[in-house]
Simulated scan of single mutants.
Amino acid sequence: MKDITVVIGNYNYARFLREAIESALANVHANARPGYDDRVRVLVIDDGSTDGSRAIIESYGERVSAVFKENQGQSSVYNLGLSLVQTEYVLFLDSDDILYPDAIGAVLRAFESGDYAKVQFRLDVIGEDGVRTGVRVPNSTPPSDCAALLRRGWLYPSPPASGNAYRVSALRSVFPIPMSLHHRKAADFFAIYGIALTGAICALDGALGGYRVHRKAEDKRSASLGQAGLSLGNCEDVSEVELSFPWRWETLRHMIRTRLGEDLPAHFIDFSYEKNRLCVRLYEASTFERWRWLMFESHRYFASVLRNPYWSAGKKLGALGLTLMCLIPGRFVNRFALRYISNPAARLATRHPATARG
């Protein structure tokens, strides 16, 4: 019987932290064995919070292990957490997300059913109040052997950080993440894609946790008008994604080259990235600018749709139809199509506007 550590990385999320810790501890109780140490251990790493996080963490006493460190970013939390865990497996839970009580049991059963380097599961997208929106991520299921496609540059469908559990020895063969100002965020990118080259991946169909979407006050005010509504994630808007992905890929190539002795392609292919580039260029653009994009800048985008190895023919046709809607004169249609392409939550809002507002 193998054990797992849930590492909760936190920075100034006191308003969500207790719920994250409680969700991890619920999994401790659900997987406890009489007469043995708990199969599930909880480690909370606070990355220099200045809100009330420390008091919340300390209130749990010996129920959790705690580390308080200076602020260095998410990558430093992953590096430190991976160096501290003493279990066979690890799951990095963001402190604004939650696990369902049966999550870790399902993950451990999956690991024990085969020789997997990673087990991933879908996450329900939840609002700031914790209510499920009806959206789940990711939308597509990857094959068990993602390495072959990654070696061709394809980024496989994966949930955000909290939906991934790793074999510690496999992740250590790729880590640590090089630390710099650029590498403070998005540590899960290097774990999610680096791990694929170390072994098979098991993708569970069910949702076993919640991915919380919340916005800064200025984003909430502009979400109905600006690009904030185009992005599902919390940390970056669509413009930041376009700037950050290339250097993340280059850093991953360096990590794989130096740790595993493999060379990944110079360029990656990913629809999530290409749809962000699409939104940056076409949102509120003139009809002339939209058609100019189609004629001169659309090659990589259409390649990520038509050559996508994870999509059915129907999904490809749907994406193409929505993309062509972006070329129709009229900003209402333009906004609708881009939001529908970019953000799964916007699709739900289109079908259930009253639910989306609530």
Rank of each mutant, 00 (worst) to 15 (best):
L278M: 09
D205F: 06
L171M: 07
V305I: 15
L197F: 04
M325I: 08
A20N: 02
V107F: 02
V64N: 03
R33F: 09
A303N: 10
C326N: 05
R277Y: 13
L324N: 04
F271P: 00
T350P: 06
G194V: 02
S272H: 14
P138H: 01
L25F: 03
L171G: 00
V333C: 13
N164W: 04
H182I: 06
A313H: 07
R54G: 09
G153P: 09
E284F: 11
R221A: 15
L264G: 00
D102I: 08
S49Y: 10
I201K: 04
G48V: 03
R339D: 13
D38H: 11
A148P: 05
V28K: 08
K118N: 13
R281A: 15
L338R: 01
E262N: 07
D145T: 07
V119F: 01
S49H: 10
S286T: 15
D38V: 04
D94I: 03
T87M: 06
T141F: 15
L260R: 02
L25N: 01
A223M: 13
I192S: 03
R331L: 13
P353C: 06
I201T: 09
V42E: 01
G194H: 02
V67N: 04
S224H: 13
R248S: 10
L320R: 04
Y340R: 13
C146F: 03
N12D: 15
P353M: 03
